[in-house]
């Protein structure tokens, strides 16, 4: 360091701004170079500060409690009650009504199965819209759990399906309609790929998502062969007067931006013994739901007596959603 003659305050030859030995008379920083450098520094700092401008819009940050909340399976009853109370507060603030929110557990001796009659379905999409209303899905941008695919008669090639049909009346001659939603697989690929265990299969067969644990990587969306999972790319928007106050923690409570969601067989209804919303609205009675472990249930009767079809059976997902035919 003995031969270091630079006066810029650096401790090595290369850290000197000008990179050359200074003249003896520049022993102190001269006024002109100080001003010059400070203007550049100010401009640089201003640019950095301005580039952080998008943070000004970051108003929907969750609370500290939400950030520190544990995984669903690790929550004690007291912690769960605290989380529920926090969510009730959030919903009241955002939508102006206090929800009937609770954490419904699976029932003993129950495994849910869904059957859909392809002979009867006319493709009216009422199930799609009843589902949106029941499960507090975002209206704009639109999130729908059920996709009704119009298929030409004589094929099950999904590539030939059309989900944007809009004729005056349905059904159209020469086509059949196949609503597709989460199949609640017994061997679910979406659960296998989740890196954080934010989605899992409950003992009644419903694959659920902890919206507070999901990191939004969308692996599950890619893994699902049924296009059943939806991602909240934007903050969901639901009109205040259309919110469904009957909510379940793992079900239809409002979701936040950046998390996955999907059909959960209307957990807030079915775990209280009721039929799902899509079933009740279906004008043709094509949709059947029940407990497969009960030999007298409707779904047991269908699986015993009807011609049943499993969508994409070859991928080995073992769905709990069956299509069947009357004749």
């Amino acid at each position: 360091m003995a031969d270091h003659t630079c006066n810029c305050g650096g401790n090595g030859a290369n850290s000197c701004a000008s990179g050359k030995p200074s003249t003896p008379e520049s022993g102190k920083v001269d006024r002109r170079s100080f001003l010059r450098k400070s203007v550049v520094m100010t401009a640089g700092l201003a640019a950095v500060a301005a580039s952080l401008a998008p943070l000004r819009d970051l108003t929907d940050l969750g609370s500290v409690d939400q950030f520190l909340q544990k995984h669903y399976k690790e929550l004690t009853p007291a912690e769960m009650e605290k989380a529920l109370e926090r969510i009730r507060g959030e919903v009241s603030r955002q939508y102006g009504l206090r929800p009937h929110l609770r954490d419904l557990k699976p029932m003993d001796g129950v495994e849910f199965v869904y059957c859909l009659n392809l002979t009867r379905c006319v493709g009216c999409r009422k199930c799609v819209h009843a589902c949106v209303a029941e499960n507090n899905q975002s209206r704009s941008p639109e999130i729908q759990y059920i996709r009704v695919v119009k298929m030409p008669n004589g094929t099950f090639d999904m590539e030939r399906g059309d989900h944007t049909y809009a004729p005056e009346t349905v059904p159209e001659k020469g086509f059949f309609y196949m609503p597709v939603q989460c199949h609640q697989c017994k061997n679910p690929p979406c659960v296998k790929v989740c890196p954080v265990d934010a989605t899992w299969q409950e003992k009644d067969g419903i694959t659920v998502i902890d919206y507070n644990w999901c990191i939004g990587c969308r692996y599950c969306e890619a893994a699902c062969p049924y296009f059943a999972r939806r991602f909240n790319f934007a903050t969901p928007s639901i009109p205040k007067d259309q919110i469904n106050a009957n909510m379940s923690y793992l079900g239809n409570r409002p979701r936040q931006k950046g998390v996955m969601e999907k059909c959960h067989f209307c957990i807030q209804r079915t775990r209280e013994g009721k039929y799902p919303a899509c079933l009740e609205v279906c004008p043709t009675g094509s949709r059947k739901f029940g407990n497969i472990l009960d030999p007298n249930s409707e779904v047991s009767y269908i699986l015993k007596n009807k011609r049943v079809f499993v969508l994409k059976e070859e991928v080995g997902t073992l769905p709990r959603f069956f299509y069947y035919f009357d004749v």
Partner: peptide
Amino acid sequence: RGVHGRMQGFWDLSRGASAKSDCTSC
């Protein structure tokens, strides 16, 4: 058996009733 036609109400009959629709409701 509740397999043809519409159903409303409860799949779990221990918790509530389920109602079938009449033929001529549809």
